[in-house]
Amino acid sequence: MTSGKTPVSDWLLEVNNLACGYNGETVVHDVNFALGHGDIGCLLGPSGCGKSTILRALAGFLPLKSGEIRLQSRDISLPGRTLAPEKRKIGMVFQDYALFPHLTVAGNVGFGLKHSSREERQQKVMELLDLVHLKDLAHNYPHELSGGQQQRVALARALAPEPTLILLDEPFSNLDADLRRRLSLDVREILKSLGISALLVTHDQQEAFAMCDQVAVLRAGRIQQWDEPYNLYHEPANRFVAGFIGQGGFIPGTAMGPDAIDSELGVIRGNRAYKWPSGTLVDVLIRPDDIVYDADSPLQPRVVEKTFAGTSTLYRFKLSDETEFEALFRSHLDFHLGETVPVRVEADHLIAFERSE
């Protein structure tokens, strides 16, 4: 005998078979993913892949053509029925911060707390400013802050109404690379300390991997893989994900068995078992960290390009017209353009796809 109550989902956010778009054109097709309580997810992909469209649908700014969005086991978007954005308990942090220039830092953070008493609002604002390390700047105005400080204010303002979910729309894209890295880690720490779930939209893989527990790779409005960052890198679901995530390139090979491929770099073995018949023509993904320097190796490709990066140097090697690949070596291994270098493949993860002629 059942109680008749609707079962509560283990997921905070559920997106099922979502399709939406603009002006009669469908931009996002059959999107499915779920985000757990306290988890940070990411929508990652090239420009125009549908990341921001999904975010707008989650925020309630865009109606659905089909599918559903559920938050805490409650339908908030269905075709023909969309819960108003202000009723969703979803906070949003924008790319351009969207701070009110005429309000102080404290005024911006407390803007959404109008229904609280003055004392409660003041206490909440100072607690949040302390959390984002801006307590001493409470009476400053946005134009007096750096970009990173403005983004912290925007985060504190989004957190003030105690949302169930925070949406982050390319929040660090206006900042320099070093500040982006530090701020993304700070934001992750803040969200985790509060136990608040978040969904980040970005095209920056390093940002996605540093901040997020789960990442969706999108292409042309469809999710190609929703997975942990480690699995996206080492166990890509298809050739697009393999080529999009991280660095690397494909070289031709021939399957010798389920876990061995013959190539110009020798026989490459790994941890994955494929079902191809022996002799199947394949393309093998070689990442820069799959190649190691080995003074005794008979394999000696020629350096055709090098990029010095301080602690390391990225080399591009050419073995033949069909086989080029990259390798990342410590910078004290200094080779010159045109020089041949003894190397070998050390690929613990075998990533290959049947070649399409």
Rank of each mutant, 00 (worst) to 15 (best):
K192A: 15
L128S: 03
H349S: 15
D75N: 07
D130L: 09
N16P: 08
A347P: 00
A242L: 13
T82N: 14
S356F: 05
E346A: 05
L232I: 06
S3K: 05
T307Q: 02
R239N: 07
P7E: 09
P85K: 04
G24A: 10
Q122F: 08
D136P: 01
D96H: 13
L159V: 00
Y230V: 12
C20L: 04
Q300W: 04
V132R: 01
G91D: 11
S77P: 00
L131W: 06
D289I: 05
G41V: 02
G266L: 12
N174E: 04
G253E: 08
L183E: 11
I90S: 05
V93Y: 00
S173R: 11
G60P: 09
G110E: 07
Y230R: 11
E170D: 11
L159T: 00
F61D: 13
E170Q: 05
A84Y: 04
G249F: 00
S116E: 15
R355D: 02
E346Y: 03
Y274C: 05
L200H: 05
D334W: 05
L129F: 06
M256G: 02
N16H: 15
M1I: 10
L99F: 08
A216C: 14
R219C: 03
P161H: 08
T280S: 15
D96W: 09
G67C: 07
A327T: 02
Y230D: 15
T6F: 10
D204G: 03
H203D: 10
Q95Y: 07
G41S: 03
V304I: 13
E86Y: 06
R181P: 01
V292S: 12
Q205A: 15
S3L: 11
S73N: 15
S263G: 07
T82Y: 03
D334S: 13
C212P: 01
E162D: 13
L314I: 12
L83I: 14
K135L: 14
R88V: 07
N238Q: 14
F100K: 07
F317E: 02
G67L: 09
N140D: 06
H102T: 15
D294N: 11
S320M: 12
R272M: 12
M92Y: 03
R152H: 00
I223M: 00
T104W: 07
D10R: 06
M126H: 11
Q206K: 11
F172W: 06
S193W: 01
L131D: 09
D290V: 06
D227S: 14
L35V: 01
A34C: 06
R121A: 02
S117V: 04
P142R: 12
R188L: 14
R344H: 08
Q300D: 04
Y230G: 07
N174V: 00
L62C: 04
Q224S: 10
K275Q: 15
V109E: 01
I69E: 08
T53K: 06
R239C: 08
L64S: 04
C49W: 13
L337E: 09
L281Q: 14
C42Y: 03
F33A: 04
P252T: 11
K51I: 03
L131P: 09
Y293D: 00
E235Q: 12
R70W: 01
S146V: 05
R182N: 14
S297A: 13
D178H: 03
W226M: 01
N17Y: 02
D186W: 02
P298E: 09
D321I: 08
L78G: 02
V105Y: 09
M92N: 00
V15F: 02
C42K: 03
R269M: 13
P101D: 10
